[in-house]
Design a protein around this nucleic acid. Sequence first.
DNA 1: CCGGTTAGCCATACGTTGTATGATTTCGCT
DNA 2: AGCGAAATCATACAACGTATGGCTAACCGG
Lengths: 233, 233
Amino acid sequence: MVKGGKAVAGRSGRPRVGEERLSRDAILQAALRIVDDEGLDAMTMRRLAATLGVNPMSIYHHLPNKAAVVAGLAELVFAELNNSTPPTGESWQEELLGAANAYRNALRAHPNLAFQVLADAAAVSDVVVVTVEPFYRALDRAGLAPRDIFEAVNTLIDFIHGFSLGEASVRAETFELAPDLVDRVSKLKPGQAPTLIRIVDELGADGLHYEFDDGFAIGLSVFVAGIAARFGL
Amino acid sequence: MVKGGKAVAGRSGRPRVGEERLSRDAILQAALRIVDDEGLDAMTMRRLAATLGVNPMSIYHHLPNKAAVVAGLAELVFAELNNSTPPTGESWQEELLGAANAYRNALRAHPNLAFQVLADAAAVSDVVVVTVEPFYRALDRAGLAPRDIFEAVNTLIDFIHGFSLGEASVRAETFELAPDLVDRVSKLKPGQAPTLIRIVDELGADGLHYEFDDGFAIGLSVFVAGIAARFGL
DNA sequence: CCGGTTAGCCATACGTTGTATGATTTCGCT
DNA sequence: AGCGAAATCATACAACGTATGGCTAACCGG
């Protein structure tokens, strides 16, 4: 590829002062777009460079390696969350539900990222720790002791993580139990899971329909009720 | 490498009847070992073949591609869980806790696998669906309605998944809050997270020590209390 | 027993990936 | 004017997953 084909602006050295320059932020934005559109596997350094109209190695001047790019994406997601309006509510329960919903929505906005984000989240930077503020606020308002707040928030966030993980791997907001669960259950050896088989059978009477929104709301209500009961409110 | 170096048994064709042969199971066992010892990234097809003393392409006769190998590993983990002795207890609460602990332990046994396992778990095969039987059994014994059992189990398993995810990314069974959380909190702009800062400060009075075992137990107790309250027991 | 089919292994090769190295150009500062 | 640092690009390399095809021994119907 020596012939001057399409490489119009492809000069070699440092860009002149008026010229467009690369930045960490522009790179991460482009990367996030690729991940959202086509999944994490599609986000290769070469592909990323191509959409930026840039040589692959140029990226390495702003980010040390690919892992740093992915970590940067995690940052973006949590930053998005921190910039959203903080939840309010008449009661501490409502405020807590608001915080939980906001958190879930932030994770849900980028389903292709969820696993990596959650895994690296702990190491990701200061951005992530601010994220828990609304939870602390709601439970502080509820009157819990510091240590109880800490434990309760951990528990709730773990639930949200697990829920989001499941939600991200199934790519729909609704879910028909019939083909996916029932058919599989019916293939089991009868002695294998008697209770499960019976319950699923009884469930068959009603609709076998699952909605993630409802599942999340129910899960939250369980935890809120549990917190109230467990920590004596 | 044409010189006959160390390739002692390295003949070309199909192995004779007495000779050692490859098998899906042997491959998966070796793969799991690599993943446990050195992480998922270390488990390349070439590396896997090398530890099996075999040509990389031989693997493809037993498993269609690398994704199938990883999926097979997920199967192994859940199979391990299904072969463990089912939990029992005087009350439904104890039985439920037993199921939860067994589930957590199964995931914890292979921390390098956790993310992929959980993500692909839904699609992984019949092995995974049997896994929920003990949970169904305990809540059925508690007297919940079928639909409530279904929702409650989902919620509990989501919590366990989220917890295990966090547990797997931090590689210790204990966790000092001081350096990791406090130092980070103290770097925040003061208006950024006032409640969090105050609570962490008050926490500083007691020990800033976190134990995953305790965190899990507390989370479970919150959940159990929530089930009882939410579904009227 | 025999001949064809297939199972199971290996060698080679291709395209893609992340990134090390080093050249090239311009900026910012003295 | 000159010089170090900043930001880009070109080239190159090792490692990856796997397609293709060749080899050998087992299996099986006659």
